[in-house]
Design a protein around this nucleic acid. Structure first.
Lengths: 225, 225
DNA sequence: CGCAATATTTTGTGATCAAAAAATCTTTAA
DNA sequence: TTAAAGATTTTTTGATCACAAAATATTGCG
């Protein structure tokens, strides 16, 4: 009988390194509202919160800086970036350039049951909207888009788009927290229909429309200050 | 009389931190041919080469991994990524989506004397091509493009494009090193003309043509293996 | 010779600490 | 009271080390 290597706790949870775990933790908070724009971030502070040494926090934070999810100032302080009109405009344009393309590339890989899964996620989003559950909406919306984009099997473009989402996450949370989710309507159905029909043009239009609504909502906030 | 703080060597050279200096060093090597695809990179090895401790090397390497300039494998080893047909295709598409847009955004900020500077850089490129100076060509080409793109004052899009260039740099160097630069023709003049005429459509076409030639040259190499 | 088992070396990871830089608080003088 | 000067604290940065995991080299056996 061969001796089975007993899986360590690490392996069970699929969390190979500490800095990776910290990275995922921080990324979630940035994407779904744990960190608001302007929030100061210190290595020591995070290390104490998360009960680890400064080293893995350092690696996770530097990675997020490289991904533009955090910002390092001239004085070496780190914070969650504020949204400016210029940044907002660039993010919006970049999304419109990349995301429809990614969706089209995904289309040929999305089977019937994948589209059912998307419909299920869309149901969760509707629910969150009804309940005014901002975090739930943001999680669902992210899941919906990246379920599609991941199917494109285009890791380079996916990485570009992930960086964009990290950059507007905190601001989006701020806006929805202030104005609520009541005015949001679910724009995902057209995308689902387009995927079912395998209609490339309709899919592009649907993704553009969805980006348009989300970003337009933020556009108001960035202009009125 | 006030006591002037004597500027340290660091400040003179504008190299605030060690890891920043290492980062710039590695980035140059990746962009212009110091590192070829597949090359293994170790923290201790680089630290010894550069005569610093492992720590700042670690930060620089992790940053480059986040920017997709280096690749970390499942076994935690780091290397310069190999080019695959899929990667090549994604890089090409991403460039075609982003760079013309960036050039158009730059156009309104490029004055007459900026365009003269571009013509000067283009002259250097011609020279390098004549002399079969691969590194000189790559440096000039990079300088030409990023002189334009930087004028767009669009840091987010610029960051996306920088990541793309880091990803094809090593492979481009490999290809040009193998096939020479004789077959390359200078495609920059149309871009300069379009900028002079402030013709947006012509500028888009010129940037697309330049991307097309550079990437097509690599395309041959990635298919024939 | 071929191949599996074992030993050695190499390498990334995480903790700890000293030094430098920046921010904050305190003091002092007009 | 206010603002500049000085002292204190906080924070990042870089070096060093122990440890674990992976790769490589060595040994031993058929």
């Amino acid at each position: 009988m061969t001796i089975e290597k007993t899986p360590t706790a690490k392996e069970k949870l699929n969390l190979p390194t500490v800095h990776e775990r910290i990275y995922q933790n921080l990324k979630e908070r940035i994407l779904f509202g744990g960190f608001l724009p302007g929030k100061a971030v210190t290595l020591r502070g995070l290390a104490e919160d998360l009960d680890v040494s400064a080293m893995p926090v350092r690696e996770a934070v530097r990675r997020l800086i490289a991904e533009k999810a955090l910002e390092m100032h001239g004085n070496r302080r780190v914070s969650v970036p504020l949204m400016t009109q210029e940044s907002y405009e660039e993010l919006s344009l970049s999304r419109r350039l990349l995301e429809p393309e990614l969706a089209v590339r995904a289309m040929k890989n999305l089977e019937k049951r994948d589209i059912e899964e998307l419909a299920r996620i869309d149901g969760l989003i509707d629910n969150a909207l009804l309940n005014g559950d901002v975090e739930g909406y943001m999680r669902g919306n992210h899941q919906f888009h990246f379920f599609i984009y991941s199917a494109a099997k285009s890791p380079i473009m996916l990485g570009l788009v992930e960086s964009l989402w990290l950059q507007f996450g905190p601001f989006m949370r701020l806006v929805y927290g202030r104005y609520g989710t009541a005015n949001l309507e679910d724009q995902h159905r057209q995308a689902i229909d387009a995927l079912r029909a395998r209609d490339e043009q309709a899919l592009r239009a649907a993704i553009l429309a969805d980006i348009g609504q989300g970003m337009h909502f933020m556009s108001d906030a960035v202009h009125t200050r």
